[in-house]
Simulated assay, not measured.
Amino acid sequence: MSNGNMFHLTFTGAVLLVSTLVIIMVWPISTRSRWNPSGRHCYVTGGSSGLGLALAILLTKRGADVSIVARNEENLQKALTQLEAHRANPNQILRAYSFSLGSQEAASEALEAACVPHGGQTPDAVFLCAGKSTPGFFIEQTEESMRKGMDDSYWLAAWSAMVASKRMVRTRTEGKIVFVSSILGYFGLVGYSTYSPGKHAIRGLAETLRQELLLYSIDVHIYMPVTMFTPGYEEENRVKPELTLKLEESDGGLTSEKAAEGLYEGVKKGEFHITDTFIANLFRTNTRGSSPFGSNVLKDLLFGFIGTIGLTLWRRDVDKQVVNHRRAHSEYLASKSILKPE
């Protein structure tokens, strides 16, 4: 056999091997049926503003029965009015419930109340959008603020996820539980010592439940958004350290509506880790561990390669900015009487 024929056979074999591997990787994802919320009961925590409200409106437009839960009754009623304005048909059940969700008992009461108009049936999808961030330097924190940081991020999601999963299993409901973490669930940043740990914890819970709830045919998803321009974001900016604001200057961010679309598209496609921006895709593919690939495996591999180089350079630049801020930070600490005079 000539060298030319040998090369041709070797090349053909390599192409067939690569093609087969690609088909094996992509086929289970590309054949998934797309989720449709029409006629399904969707339960949304944090549904009176920001991402929760934007998502509730999107689901309402697509024909879902929507229950929103939040603490402020006045804001809930305003939100419910907006849902009514976007109903797709007169048969949709749209309800609002005022609960704090800060304990297992409260989370259970909220979920049970939302089931009543549906004949006691468990929601088909539970979206855990409630959460809050209060930025600040770690050395300024107290035991109370540290605990509150976990309460406002991790526990708000964990309690509702627990009561929802128990009810789904008990009623044999093959539903969905959708967590909302943050891009700060992939890495840490100055000023988020009370927030980022909770978002990492949500990721850990979602990773565990994704596998465990396979026992009951319950799907788990987690959305990892970048900065979202919400009322909560405006509030946190009022107390955010100057250094943190500077590091976030290049972060374009998303509107609540755009983020809701990204979350919805990810759930519809059956993705586990849902990311909808270039930077979030870089972090996802470089920190995914054994998590499933997204809906486009080859695209994920490309993001992974770019991120290996790009994120290393990005981190080096961020660390340099932090070091260069030492003098200004010392002056800040002195003004707060935290740093002893020399």
Score class of each variant (00 low, 15 high):
217 S>M: 05
332 Y>A: 01
4 G>A: 09
105 E>C: 05
208 T>G: 09
245 L>F: 07
55 L>N: 08
329 H>T: 08
321 Q>C: 05
50 G>Q: 02
336 K>F: 10
285 T>P: 14
261 E>Y: 10
251 D>R: 01
157 A>D: 04
177 I>T: 11
226 V>K: 05
270 G>L: 08
296 N>T: 10
252 G>F: 03
321 Q>D: 00
127 F>L: 13
207 E>P: 06
322 V>Q: 01
100 S>Q: 05
333 L>S: 09
330 S>A: 08
9 L>V: 14
169 V>T: 11
187 F>C: 07
197 P>V: 01
211 Q>R: 15
307 G>P: 11
58 L>C: 07
305 F>R: 11
125 A>P: 10
277 T>L: 02
84 E>G: 02
96 A>I: 05
294 G>W: 03
9 L>R: 09
287 T>G: 00
79 A>G: 07
334 A>T: 12
217 S>H: 13
168 M>R: 11
90 P>T: 02
15 V>N: 04
247 L>Q: 07
226 V>D: 02
304 G>A: 02
28 P>R: 00
257 E>G: 08
53 L>G: 13
207 E>C: 09
7 F>R: 11
98 S>A: 14
287 T>D: 00
279 I>M: 10
268 K>M: 14
7 F>D: 04
223 Y>G: 09
241 P>R: 00
301 L>Q: 06
158 A>G: 07
76 L>V: 03
132 K>F: 15
175 G>W: 11
58 L>W: 11
260 A>C: 11
266 G>M: 05
43 Y>I: 08
319 D>K: 12
278 F>R: 01
160 S>Q: 09
208 T>F: 04
198 G>V: 08
217 S>T: 09
317 D>F: 02
194 T>S: 08
146 M>C: 12
188 G>Q: 02
107 A>L: 01
107 A>C: 04
285 T>L: 00
48 S>M: 06
89 N>T: 12
229 F>G: 00
112 E>Q: 14
330 S>L: 06
239 V>E: 03
334 A>V: 11
97 Y>T: 02
178 V>F: 07
306 I>C: 03
147 R>M: 09
54 A>D: 03
11 F>A: 13
215 L>A: 12
41 H>A: 05
77 Q>W: 10
299 K>T: 15
195 Y>P: 06
20 T>M: 12
237 N>Y: 14
231 P>S: 05
248 E>S: 10
227 T>K: 13
320 K>C: 01
211 Q>F: 15
139 I>D: 15
90 P>M: 04
